[in-house]
Nucleic acid binder design. Structure first.
Lengths: 217, 217, 217, 217
DNA sequence: CATGAATGAGTATTCATTCAT
DNA sequence: CATGAATGAATACTCATTCAT
């Protein structure tokens, strides 16, 4: 699925890109503070460094800004995720490393993640599929990595479990941000990552099982 | 923390309760469809079966309705969760059962869950703590059950892991709803629950580990 | 064709009628000065004696006001026209009298007529038919009166001529208003009416014809 | 009265004329569709084949375009009217012929006529006199022709009647256009012209009168 | 001369909230 | 207690006009 076009009146493509960068930057800052609905177009224009008239030279409707913002965030996340996963060698150790990297990236982007979680639903039925699609692609990247480990005999999961594990991973990375009111009081980021990875790989095993398992040479 | 008071002009307590029930029922239906921001107070009044004037006899501001609604939803969830967990006998088997029950309840309430996820952030800094508190309490219920298993020697988890596992459980129960656009295409609810529980208890174990573990007598 | 409904949020029918009267009065005054497009809804509200919010309790869109205004004007004209024509006895003399009355009424309403001529086209395709229908009905009233004279042997016109004569009459009555920049400099109203009626009944006859005709005993 | 100057920034007179021709052509097409108010300057620029910036090199304000357009239309009408009337030999027959020609021209230009009727009022108090003046001149052309007939003894009308007859003629020619919603359903253009001329020359005469008149040798 | 990006005053419309009845 | 008419601040979006390139 291609990127959804947001129509601009201005023809100069370079300029459109530049102005939209300004716009996204300004809008993100405001959305972080007050959310999409409570932010006015005039505020966005001001925060972007141009007039309300100019703003509308680069979009058609307020919702276009939200789309641009969310789309941009997904691109950022994807970019980071790609980097995190590309080192991956198909071993458990490298998988754990990738996950830790991803968790850390998401922690850095927690405010963006928050905006996405809370505002994406304000996208029209028209725009929503495009961003969901991006999310599906990202979950797919995790799946691929996990599936790799399974192929290598490092993990033993069926297809349903692989898919679900990928989902869980994706969500847990963002959880640090969207549940920070609880998690960030109880854990440092390092603790969170460590514990999360432990649970992920050991599961909530029975005590004996674990001893025996742990007891292997 | 006590329930936050929403001021009413009407004195008759019985009536207040009754009217608010009507209000919540009407508002929930609307919030499910269009979200809090896109729903007007007039629509809520109409859906509740009384006039806009009357609506304001029982609340002070529109946000009060959101608080009432979200608060009510949390109560509902808590109620169900309590029921799910009270049978619990501290064994792994009963824990798995409780989790399955909870996942099923959350699937039934997925629309409500969606509303909570998407609209709770619209609560003022003033009201938010009250509902977050309820959520913390619910996570605490899970913690307690897990901790019980640990005490019984059924599970071997440290305190950090217990807390986190509780969080994960809580979120995964709601995930079926808030990521339905992806999950409900790939899984039936039963499959989701089964796979989720498998992952939860086995973790993403190494293949050999699992064989050995499984191979115990 | 029934009157087009303009939706009001207010339920009290009496009040709707009263407020719309105020609205029409205020709007007409403004439309006379600056036309529909140059008049803002706020100005109309102020001129009507209530707030912009209240204005919108009684209409849905700005265009509704135009419809209300034009519709009202047509009703006024019709009312007067009915009165002018009802005395009519089917003789040439009484026809001339009716016409003179009508011309005089239109002169009184010239500003309203001007508004109608200039703004009616701003009505949506949706509303236009309703007012055109009223105009057709009024032309029909003239036709009927003329046809009466024909039946009585007072006039000798075929059906096409009757219809056209009715149109001409209708338009000429309004001409005094919509061409006042020319006519009102050259004629008093009495002169206009007198000359117009002469032309209407004699036509631009050949000189000899007229002498002979005039010379009859 | 001289033509009103519309200021241009561009000096090259030839170019000014050419660009304004483009402009008028583009604007007329748009005004026919949507009227002056609903047409934007950008649309006019695009329809004219140049940019908004260029448009403003040849006018000062949007209203200038309307003036240019209306002025041009009057010139067109005048041109045709001159052609229609110049054959005129001062007889009744040739007068009827001229009238028929004029009616036919106006039928061809009905959309332009409509624009003039509906939009001319949007001209500023400043520009209006110039175009009204043109209209007065055209009515004067009709007057002259009629007066000629009177001098030749072909018609017997006093000065007031001459002027009024000229007005009526002028308006009736345009009526086919501005009342087309009624007339064009009931008449073909030929029927309209024929009936209108009959009424014009016979008037709505008494039946006896007509017989007697018709009975002359 | 031509272009088109920038501007911001202006406008219709909505909606939470109040308060007299 | 219940009603619903009144209010006006707030807001998205438009468009004539300017001016630097």
């Amino acid at each position: 699925m291609k990127r959804r076009e947001v129509q601009a009146s201005v023809k100069d493509e370079k300029l459109v890109v530049k102005r939209r960068e300004q716009m996204i930057k300004g809008a993100v800052a405001l959305f972080k503070q007050k959310g999409f609905h409570r932010t006015t177009t005039r505020e966005i224009a001001r925060a972007s460094g141009f007039s309300i008239g100019t703003l509308y030279e680069y979009i058609r409707k307020k919702e276009d800004i939200l789309y641009l913002v969310v789309d941009h965030m997904y691109d950022q996340i994807r970019e980071r995720l790609e980097k995190d996963l590309e080192l991956h060698k198909g071993t458990l150790e490298s998988l754990k490393l990738s996950i830790a990297y991803y968790f850390r990236e998401m922690a850095e982007m927690q405010e963006e993640v928050l905006v996405m979680y809370q505002e994406a639903k304000s996208l029209s039925k028209d725009a929503l599929p495009y961003v969901l699609n991006k999310e599906i692609a990202m979950v797919g990247m995790f799946e691929e990595v996990i599936r790799n480990c399974v192929r290598n005999g490092e993990l033993d999961l069926n297809e349903k479990q692989i898919k679900l594990a990928a989902h869980n991973l994706f969500v847990q990375g963002q959880m640090w941000g969207f549940r920070r009111w609880a998690l960030q009081k109880a854990y440092t980021l390092d603790e969170y990552i460590e514990s999360q990875i432990e649970l992920l790989f050991q599961g909530m095993q029975g005590a004996r099982t674990k001893q025996e398992t742990g007891g292997e040479r």
